[in-house]
């Protein structure tokens, strides 16, 4: 479904991604871990098509199409979803109104009928309950005045409504207490299925106790330096990132 080959990208003059290859098949959950500054968030932004990130090499194929050639909104319509690490506030724009517009844009793109306000509201309420998002937040402006946890739940809520085929979760666990973390994980787990792939970007192993990945990749200095199964995350938790960085630096030893 998603095939990233030797992807390189930079921000302004700093090369962040230095050749990343990653294949995500439907039904798989890939965890991408790594220390701060390793390029984890950049990977998410590049997949979503943020204009500040300039792709300098490599390719990204998605469902057989060149993802890098698509506008951000077209990627979204094709089923790519990014749960932002820092969701922005949009004053005056109602959460409900915004999400209905988004859903209908995507439905229109797919040639599906648009949802009217009533059908949408029913759907939204159902999904809000699923991720334990306070229903009153649906009427508030997008993310405005939301707590950190509410913002993250709002991201997962949007994912649940938009039903993407590829979801990239960028540090969705950061700043969450344990209850919120469980709620977010439950929401994600409920969406796991044979047709959907996930990339879960995280700094800590904690989230992976709740969202159990099929594969774990360690990102360091813009490259994936180690890949493995879910046990790799536990190993990282125990030993920290240093050993693996050293191992990568001295492959012979």
């Amino acid at each position: 479904m998603l095939e990233i080959k030797e992807l390189q990208a930079k921000v302004e003059d700093t090369q962040i991604l230095k050749g990343i290859s990653l294949q995500v098949n439907p039904g798989e959950v890939h965890a991408v871990m790594g220390p701060n500054g390793s390029g984890k968030s950049t990977l998410g932004k590049v997949i979503a098509g943020h204009e500040d990130y300039l792709v300098t090499g490599g390719s990204v194929a998605y469902k057989g199409k060149d993802l890098l050639d698509m506008e951000p909104e077209d990627r979204a319509c094709e089923g790519v979803f990014l749960a932002f690490q820092y969701p922005v506030e949009i004053p005056g724009v109602g959460n409900n109104y915004f999400l209905r517009t988004a859903l209908n844009s995507i439905r229109k793109y797919r040639g599906e009928e648009e949802l009217d306000a009533f059908d949408f509201l029913e759907l939204a309420r159902e999904k809000a309950d699923l991720v334990e998002l306070d229903r009153s937040l649906l009427d508030r402006p997008v993310n405005e005045g939301f707590s950190g946890g509410e913002k993250k739940r709002n991201e997962v809520f949007q994912m649940a409504v938009l039903e993407p085929t590829l979801a990239v979760l960028d540090e969705t666990d950061s700043g969450l207490d344990i209850d919120a973390l469980k709620a977010v994980a439950d929401g994600v787990n409920s969406m796991r299925g044979p047709d959907r792939g996930f990339i879960v970007i995280t700094h800590y192993q904690r989230l992976l106790e709740y969202i159990v990945p099929d594969y774990v990749h360690v990102l360091h200095d813009g490259r994936i330096i180690k890949s493995g199964g879910k046990e790799l995350a536990l190993e990282l938790e125990e030993k920290g990132y240093t050993w693996i960085e050293e191992e990568a630096a001295n492959p012979a030893s």
Binding site: E51, D52, I90, P91, F98, T101
Partner: peptide, 27 residues
């Protein structure tokens, strides 16, 4: 720019995103 990107990531065109943000500003 981050607001526009956020809306576009959710599938909304730039044009609609701007209109949405401006209308929100005037609400």
């Amino acid at each position: 720019e981050d607001q526009i990107f956020y809306l576009r990531q959710r599938g909304i065109s730039t044009e609609d995103a701007i209109s949405m943000i401006v209308n929100g500003f005037c609400k």
